[in-house]
C-alpha cells in the first residue's frame, strides 16, 4: 500500500486560513490502513479544525466525506454535486488522490492533508516500512523475493557493500542489510548459487529517472 503520515495540524491550519467553506475528504484505501487519512482520521481532523476556527472567532463551515478511492473517476464523481458549495478541499488521500482531485475539479483549490511517504507494509500497528520503489522492472525473482532497490540504501544489485556489519546497514544500526536478508533467504531456499550470478546493468529508464510514467493497455482500454 501507499504509506502516508498526517501533516502537522499547524501546517494544515496555515493552508486553510483564507477559506470559510471547506470539505475534508478522506480516502478508504491505503491511507485508511496506515491510519493517516481514513474515515476516522477525517472525522478527527474535521473536528479539530472546527474547534480551532470557532476558538478563533471565525465562522468556518467544515464538512467531511470519505470516498472509496480518490484515484478513480467514479468515486471522485460522487462529490461533483456538492463541490460548488465549498471554497477549498482538504484531501487526506495520498499525493495521487490529491492530484486527481485537483485535475478533476480544476477551479477549486485542493490542499494535501498528508505527506505521502512510500510503498510499504504494516510491520505492526503503528509501524510501517518501505518495500517497493516502483522501479518498473522487478528483479525480485533473482533476489529471493527481497528488494535491494528499495531496501538497500545504495540500491546495490550484486551483494552488500563494506558497510554491512553483523547483518545491519551502516546508515542505521536498527536497519537490516537487505543483502544479508537476501543471502539468508537464498540459503534457506537452497539457491545460494544464484548469489554468484552477476546482475546485468539495470535499465533505470523505467524508474522515475525516465520521467513521468504511464501504462496503456489496448487490450482492456475502452
Amino acid at each position: 500500500m501507499i504509506v502516508a503520515k498526517q501533516k502537522p495540524l499547524e501546517e494544515i491550519i496555515e493552508e486553510l486560513q483564507d477559506y470559510t467553506k471547506i470539505l475534508v475528504a478522506g480516502c478508504n484505501e491505503c491511507v485508511t490502513v496506515c491510519e493517516a487519512g481514513g474515515k476516522k482520521e477525517t472525522a478527527i481532523l474535521a473536528s479539530s479544525l472546527r474547534m480551532y476556527f470557532l476558538n478563533q472567532g471565525k465562522d468556518v463551515k467544515i464538512d467531511e466525506v470519505t470516498l472509496e478511492r480518490q484515484c478513480d473517476h467514479e468515486y471522485l464523481e460522487e462529490i461533483r454535486k456538492v463541490i460548488g458549495s465549498y471554497e477549498a478541499i482538504l484531501s487526506l488521500a495520498c499525493g495521487v488522490g490529491v492530484q486527481f482531485m485537483a485535475e478533476k475539479y480544476f477551479s477549486v483549490p485542493v490542499f494535501p492533508g498528508v505527506d505521502t511517504c512510500f510503498m510499504g507494509v504494516t510491520e505492526e500497528r503503528g509501524v510501517w516500512s518501505e518495500r517497493c520503489q516502483g522501479c518498473g522492472q522487478c528483479i525480485l525473482a533473482r533476489t529471493a523475493g527481497i528488494c535491494p532497490v528499495s531496501r538497500c540504501a545504495k540500491r546495490l544489485l550484486n551483494g552488500p557493500c563494506g558497510g554491512s556489519t553483523k547483518g545491519k546497514c551502516e546508515i542505521d544500526k536498527e536497519l537490516d542489510c537487505a543483502w544479508q536478508i537476501i543471502i539468508d533467504r537464498l540459503k534457506e531456499l537452497g539457491k545460494l548459487e544464484q548469489y554468484e550470478q552477476l546482475s546485468p546493468i539495470k535499465d533505470w529508464s523505467t524508474e522515475r529517472a525516465g520521467g513521468p510514467r504511464k501504462i496503456t493497455r489496448e487490450d482492456i482500454r475502452q
Binding site: 495540524l9 499547524e10 474547534m51 476558538n55
Partner: peptide, 8 residues
C-alpha cells in the same frame, strides 16, 4: 495534544 493545538 490536539486540544492544546486548537487552543482549548
Amino acid at each position: 495534544n490536539i486540544l492544546e493545538k486548537v487552543g482549548i
